[in-house]
Design a protein around this nucleic acid. Structure first.
Length: 569
RNA sequence: GCUGGCGUGGCUCAGGGGUAGAGCAGUCGAUUCGUAAUCGACAGGUCGAGGGUUCGAAUCCCUCCGCCAGCUCCA
């Protein structure tokens, strides 16, 4: 048994060999193993289609059956150059320019590729593979370079593992929040507003419930809430550094011959609010939250349902604090994020520490200090982390929280950014004990990240079956026959008065059909009322997963639902 | 933004140079039903938009818009 990435790397070679057999003019770029499979990039006249994939797979099968040994060969760089010049493989020559004096190639049958290895011993081992898709990809990931054709595939050691993986992909497609968002009537994106989502009544229930939860937890932790304007004068964005560092993602407009920008971030507005009055050291830490709607110009090709949009709501907060409060405040945010991810949603997560990017404001010493402070907090909290070099915000380093959903996919949601630069730029001050004006330090942080994206993640995580506290409709009352309509409406009204989101399906359709409709809408509880229930003043309860739960009085049911809501289950 | 693919009723899809079709959903009627699809009828589309070719375009060509898969980027 070889490690999967070794097997997949060989699979990439087998695929390249097959492609070369079918299209001898193909120029090979690179073909590595990746997280869930492998790919190889080609430059060729023929435009690959999905149909070509099965032809390539057939050719690959021949190569597997031929059981070619993979043979490693050490060459000098110049020998390799000669080889690939002869083979007319210009991308390999370009790669060689940056490789050391001694390089290696791997051969299998008539095929040879520049490659470090390692590989499996024989093409015979690449039995369980599947080609998945064709897509464009830039040479060296650089949008100024030519676009190549990339074939994605995957490979496993056993047929079972391959099947399992393909099933997982199907499952992910079935849970796609764009599909569920339509079916459950949560949100839509119209042609008139690419990347600008519309929230439907049911989507708004989820959204408002999340926001209510957010507010409760923030009030408990001493946060205040503000709302800053969506549009502010361009001068502000020059001062904040956004104009220089973020201009390409911003929307601008004119008002009375003055230039304004729609906010891509909430912090500059937060700065203005801090500056509205003098602050004493006694006021700090000042924790100011904002559910802020930001707009960012994202490339059209990157838009993706609610996951990637052009306007979204950040559950933002800015914490202004004394330098001595940095550690406690960071830890407080880490605890809050942990509570939300772990206790409420049950998401496992990992953290990354992102350091100074190329476009950055503030000097190196400042960055060093900020990065160290974040690192210290992580270590104090005993949180293992990986470093994400150069991935910080332009105003400060950050801790990113990546949660893992029920399909094992990870999503970056929460982030904590430590910022010494903005307070400097906006000349923020507080009056210290000694009567001197001093500079506060600032934390930017989000828990959900973007409400829109978080809802998308939740939708896929739960496959549309939102827990009761979030479910847009918590109970559907289904009268069996017309004579129970009055009783059914009375039951619904009682539930409504107790704060339960209830609907009634009294359409003139069979009970089976109405149960099915409620099941498909993933409504947690169905309340069936027929003659028996109407006469005894009870309900017959069905749960979307547990099925028929038999009959009971209304009160225990109300308590059950209210308990689930209170427990956020 | 780039490469490739795709745009037909609310949804899923068929049709493919002679002037639009199914299922589901919807409406109406019959039915009044005991835990995932009762039966029937009706209604619903200038086939993404604009231009061109043609006697005739949803169908062929061009441009634009949008969507999908990637790339790049990111909450």
């Amino acid at each position: 048994m070889y490690p999967l990435d070794t097997l997949r790397h060989t699979a990439a070679h087998v695929m390249a060999q097959a492609v070369l057999r079918l299209w001898p003019d193909a120029k090979l770029a690179i073909g590595p193993a990746i997280k869930n499979g492998f790919y190889y990039d080609f430059d060729m006249e023929h435009r690959l289609t999905e149909e070509d994939l099965s032809a390539i797979e057939k050719e690959m099968e021949k190569i597997v059956k031929a059981e070619y040994a993979l043979v490693r060969e050490e060459l000098s760089n110049s020998e390799a150059q000669e080889l690939f010049r002869k083979l007319d493989q210009p991308y390999k020559l370009e790669l060689l320019k940056e490789l050391p004096e001694q390089v290696s190639v791997y051969r299998q049958g008539e095929f040879v590729d520049l490659c470090q290895g390692p590989h499996v011993d024989s093409t015979a081992l690449v039995k369980h593979f599947k080609l998945q898709s064709v897509a464009g990809a830039y040479w060296r990931g650089d949008s100024s370079q030519p676009m190549l054709q990339r074939i994605y595939g995957t490979a496993f050691n056993t047929a079972e593992e391959l099947q399992e993986h393909l099933k997982l992909l199907e499952e992910a497609a079935a849970r796609d929040h764009r599909k569920l968002g339509r079916e459950l009537d949560l949100f839509s994106i119209q042609e008139e507003g690419p990347g600008f989502p519309f929230f439907h009544p049911k989507g708004m229930v989820i959204r408002n419930t999340l926001e209510d939860f957010w507010r409760q937890e923030h009030v408990k932790r001493g946060y205040q809430e503000v709302k800053t304007p969506i549009m502010l004068h361009e001068d502000l964005w020059h001062r904040s550094g956004h104009y220089d560092n973020y201009r390409d993602n911003m929307y601008f407009t004119d008002i009375d011959e003055e230039r304004f920008a729609i906010k891509p971030m909430n912090c500059p507005g937060g700065m203005l609010l801090y500056r509205r009055k003098l602050h004493s050291y006694r006021d700090l830490p000042l924790r100011v939250g904002e559910l802020g709607l930001v707009h960012r110009h994202e490339l059209s090709g990157t838009l993706h349902g609610l996951m990637r949009v052009r306007c979204f709501t950040q559950d933002d907060a800015h914490i202004f604090m004394l330098p001595s409060q940095i550690q406690d405040e960071i830890e407080g945010v880490i605890d809050l994020i942990d509570m939300v991810y772990t206790d409420v949603f049950g998401f496992p997560y990992h953290v990354e520490l992102s350091t100074k990017p190329e476009n950055a404001i503030g000097d190196d010493a400042m960055w060093e200090k900020a990065t160290e402070a974040l690192r210290e907090a992580l270590e104090k909290k005993n949180l293992p982390y990986v470093i994400n070099e150069g991935d910080g915000a332009f105003y400060g380093p950050k801790i990113d929280f990546h949660l893992e959903d029920s399909l094992g996919r990870t999503w970056q949601c929460g982030t904590i950014q430590l910022d010494f630069a903005m307070p400097e730029r906006f000349d923020l001050t507080y009056i210290d004990e000694d009567g001197q004006r001093k500079r506060p330090v600032m934390l930017h942080r989000v828990i959900f990240g973007s409400i829109e994206r978080f809802i998308a993640i939740l939708t896929e995580h739960y496959a549309g079956a939102f827990p009761t506290w979030l479910a847009p409709v918590q109970a559907m009352v289904i009268p069996i026959g017309e004579s129970q309509y009055g009783y059914a409406h009375a039951v619904a009204q009682t539930l409504r008065e107790r704060g339960i989101r209830v609907e009634i399906d009294d359409r003139d359709e069979s009970m089976g059909k109405r149960i099915r409709a409620a099941q498909l809408q993933q409504i947690p509880y169905m309340i069936i009322v027929g003659q028996r229930e109407a006469e005894s003043g009870t309900i017959s309860l069905r749960h979307r997963r547990e099925g028929d739960l038999g009959s009971l009085e209304l009160e225990p049911f109300v308590n059950r639902v209210l308990e689930e809501i209170a427990q956020r289950r």
